[in-house]
Amino acid sequence: MLLIPCPYCGERDETEFSYGGEAHIERPKDPEKLSDAEWADYVFMRPNSKGILLERWVHSHGCRRWFNLARDTVTYKIHAVYRMGEKPPRVPKTDYV
């Protein structure tokens, strides 16, 4: 069970939150000009990285606000939390094989 630091409410139990997937995925500016493969790449394809992942969470049973986490997908350690629209912080490099 994770203890997630909501930037508004403070540390809360993971059960209060919902996961929003990887953060900072930009919607293509001209979707009509994309090929099916490029569109599928935007919609479905994620690096599924092993290590620190920048991801979105929403405090759905608390203040209902979205925010970002930098979380290690191996150790589950939360390295940073930052609000929507803020620049992702520098996080240490992970060296998993």
Binding site: C9, E11, R12, D13, T15, E16, H61, G62, C63
Partner: peptide, 24 residues
């Protein structure tokens, strides 16, 4: 309820939205 209800976290006059027995 998963909240920390210890007086140092939640005392009179404070409020919090959370879950109780999975109900909001």
């Amino acid at each position: 309820c998963p909240l920390d209800l210890h007086p140092r976290m939640l005392s009179a006059g404070r409020c919090a939205q959370s879950l109780c027995a999975k109900a909001m």
